[in-house]
């Protein structure tokens, strides 16, 4: 449905998007994840024909964004970061205007307006001025605007930013319900949002794609691996050799990785990752005590998408420095 190849966007000297490639199949919900300023909005603006790319191509439903923009525009619904609303219009009037703008036949517009207003739960305010609406309602009117012409592809730029937790929940449910009929790309910097709403995730950092996988794969890879935080100290204030402790921990069956978090004269903090389905806590405790050290702390640590995200985006920075 969406195909992006070698897409690059440069502003003066800064590179906002650097040769990214990805594909989105019909009916998927794809989360576009990245820290602020990673190039999410720029990519979306190129996909919606708001701005042309410097290099590379992007196509939607087989139509190139540069060569056939009118065809592309007919097939996309776009909700920018700030919903594009006219405060002086009533909700119904606004949706009617957008319907006309998107080229819907005049006869169909009243019915479509009614449908999307109900779908997005704004039917009760349809006679209200947009300037009088709360932020949550505005966001939903923005969504209604994006789906009024029943587009193949929905492009949502941070659809839940600035909403309260209840509204966020409702908006996510709404987006999930839209996925049946549309292909959805949504950008966010909030990780749980991706876990809860998307099938696939594209992690972007500094204008490049750093990871691309299904959410199920990513989380299972992470969830399966349990991590525990351990603090080991030497008995009687002894100096403790880090290497020795690490070696001992690594020898425990089921441990996949040992990371030194911090260390001082008295003790060392480690994070231990175990293989999927293995509970190594008891073995770790026994091993430490048997070696004649003190175990000061042992607690499970939750691994979330957050960590892989931070790791990926951080390593990206590191490689850039090296270059």
């Amino acid at each position: 449905m969406i195909k992006v190849e070698g897409l690059t966007k440069r502003y003066d000297r800064t590179v906002a998007v650097n040769a990214i490639d990805f594909e989105v199949d019909k009916g998927q919900i794809v989360g576009f994840l990245g820290p602020n300023g990673a190039g999410k909005t720029t990519t979306m603006r190129i996909l919606t024909c708001f701005m042309p790319p410097t290099e590379g191509t992007a196509s939607i439903a087989g139509f190139d964004v540069q060569k056939q923009p009118q065809e592309v525009k007919r097939r996309i619904g776009y909700l920018p970061e700030t919903p594009p609303l006219y405060p002086e219009m009533e909700v119904e009037e606004y949706l009617t205007f957008v319907g006309r703008l998107k080229g819907l036949p005049s006869a169909e517009i009243p019915q479509r307006v009614k449908d999307v207003a109900e779908r997005c739960a704004v039917a009760d305010v349809r006679k209200k001025l947009i300037s009088k609406l709360s932020k949550g309602y505005r966001q939903r009117v923005g969504l209604a605007q994006a789906i009024i012409h029943n587009p193949d592809v929905l492009i949502l730029d941070e659809p839940t930013s600035g909403l309260d937790p209840k509204q966020i929940h409702e908006t996510r449910d709404l987006i999930r319900s839209l996925a049946a009929a549309h292909t959805v790309i949504l950008s966010t910097h909030i990780l749980p949002e991706v876990e809860q709403t998307c099938d696939h995730v594209i992690i972007i950092s500094r204008g490049s794609v750093v990871a691309r996988d299904s959410v199920a794969n990513l989380t299972s890879r992470l969830r399966g691996a349990e991590a525990i935080a351990v603090e080991v100290t030497g008995r009687n204030q002894d100096q403790l050799d880090v290497g020795a402790v690490r070696q001992k921990l690594e020898q425990i069956a089921g441990v996949s990785r040992v990371v030194l978090k911090s260390s001082n004269d008295h003790g060392h903090h480690f994070e231990i990752e175990s293989l999927q389905g293995r509970n190594v806590r008891a073995d770790v405790a026994r091993s430490v005590v048997e070696s004649g050290w003190d175990l000061n702390e042992l607690r499970p640590v939750a691994v979330s998408l957050e960590e892989i995200f931070l790791e990926l985006t951080a390593s990206e920075k590191a490689t850039e420095v090296k270059q």
Partner: peptide, 14 residues
């Protein structure tokens, strides 16, 4: 200023 330019420029109008 309102950001509605994005709506107009991404709609199928010239």
């Amino acid at each position: 200023r309102q950001g509605t330019a994005e709506l107009l420029l991404t709609s199928p109008v010239r």
